[in-house]
Design a binder for these strands. Structure first.
Lengths: 259, 259
DNA sequence: CGAATTATTGATATTAGTCAATATATGTGG
DNA sequence: CCACATATATTGACTAATATCAATAATTCG
């Protein structure tokens, strides 16, 4: 489905140096194969890990005693999954495969190594975390303050953006493995209301999402319905050192120059 | 109100070294004094900055065309405000003073310096960002999947936790400068429903929040109503380097040892 | 004191939820 | 390939929660 190597979340901020790419690849442990519906962990589990999502889709959700749940993030290949529970004693979120998927666990120690030896990668991971915060803020705002149809529209829009980013040339239907129950769980609605919203979106020729196939017919009207533009772009400019005297040479001057 | 210096978000992960504390203090620019209601910036504003909140409370919110808004975060002294828009071209969130407050802007360049020269502080800021993500996930779940009374309860609980953290010995009413309209904006409710929920919480002797004074009467029953325990603790263990052979000496071995 | 904001109350409207039945699609083993 | 079990989607009748609207009361602030 997605031909690119799943590092688009990281390489958006510029190409990685060889050793950075290597470190990032080697951070993860042995890959685990998941079938749709399989749990990686539950909310409340001790010593949560972070996972690198190699292929397929997984959801992160907050679950309730009565069986209700809220999906708080749908992860696509290349994402780091479970980071909100990083360095915590127990997991905040349940991780479950939405499609057959492959994830590779990342130990906290390897995260530490990455932060100590590759500060630029740390900077990128920090910025990506802020993207995720902005994403959650937006989802919270839409769930708290808009009608069902706009909530579903916002979900479709954000997925469409992210899939387009991974595969910019793609047109036509895309693989989006959520049941209507899961769409409801992601938008704070029931499966019944999710169903009605999808029907309205189809009928208004804005988007059709049936079974696991999603097609956006009219991006402009989708944006108009949802009432929000695309997410803002970010850069890594802030991390670059533009003041020459703050960029020390590899060896101290005294060892390489004659006085 | 709060006697501690406003660095509790950071110092929870251990004491800062002298140079770290200095760098953290010097990161911010000239403080700005705000009166209640004053805007620091609006959603969509270009070149957003981060702000260090020295005193008072501020809100971050997502605003809609029709005047509706969702408050996505209530910030207490010591918080960094506006970080979700860090390094973005336009701001994701509106920042507004909930009480008279003092904030100090932090330039992106100073953030860069901090990340380059103080990797342990970068690691702490990373972990704090994950705390915030977990917070947003929880709020999203409560707004999407619980009744009005539980949403208001969750808000009270999280504020109570955070205020207790800043001032563990405090008992009795606390200063919590939100109008009922603002409580509604934070929970995805109207001012009318927020009012009814507060009355029910008072009548059930769980908590009373009138005008800007909040008192939790029965923490246990509040937790029971909300149905969630306290947030999990986090550590900075992952950043410490415990494996000796992975901590290279300052000079390569070949230069310091005889073959 | 008086204006403005905030809180409270009640009547009514609307949205989305609940429940339950049926239809359709998917997957499995014989 | 079919028959069956299961999961998912669709529909309709009814209910409950919360919003909306509007009026009044209380509080704060200059």
């Amino acid at each position: 489905m997605d031909q690119r190597p799943p590092t688009c979340r990281i390489t958006r901020y510029g190409p990685l140096a060889h050793d950075e790419a290597l470190a990032f690849e080697e951070m993860a442990g042995a890959p685990m194969t998941l079938v749709r519906g399989q749990y990686v962990r539950h909310r409340g589990d001790a010593d949560p890990k972070v996972y690198f999502l190699r292929s397929g889709w997984v959801s992160c959700s907050v679950t309730f005693e009565d069986g209700a749940r809220q999906i708080v993030k749908i992860h696509l290949p290349g994402d780091l999954v479970g980071v909100p529970s990083f360095a915590a004693s127990v997991a905040s979120e349940t991780i479950q495969a939405l499609s057959d998927a492959v994830v590779a666990p990342v130990s906290n120690q390897n995260f530490g190594k990455l932060f100590r030896h590759h500060p630029r990668l740390a900077a990128i991971l920090f910025v990506v975390s802020q993207e995720e915060r902005a994403f959650l803020m937006r989802r919270l705002a839409w769930v708290g303050r808009t009608r069902s149809i706009q909530r579903v529209g916002e979900l479709i829009m954000s997925l469409h953006d992210r899939m387009s980013l991974a595969d910019p040339t793609h047109t036509g239907p895309m693989f989006a493995p959520l049941s209507q129950e899961e769409i409801g769980d992601a938008t704070g609605l029931t499966n019944v209301t999710a169903n009605q919203c999808l029907q309205e979106l189809r009928q208004r020729q804005i988007a059709s999402w049936r079974r696991f196939s999603l097609e956006v017919h009219d991006r402009a009207r989708l944006e108009e319905l949802v009432g929000i533009p695309r997410e803002a772009n970010r850069t890594l400019d802030w991390f670059e050192d533009r003041m020459p005297d703050q960029n020390p040479p590899l060896l101290p001057k005294s060892l390489t120059t004659m006085p």
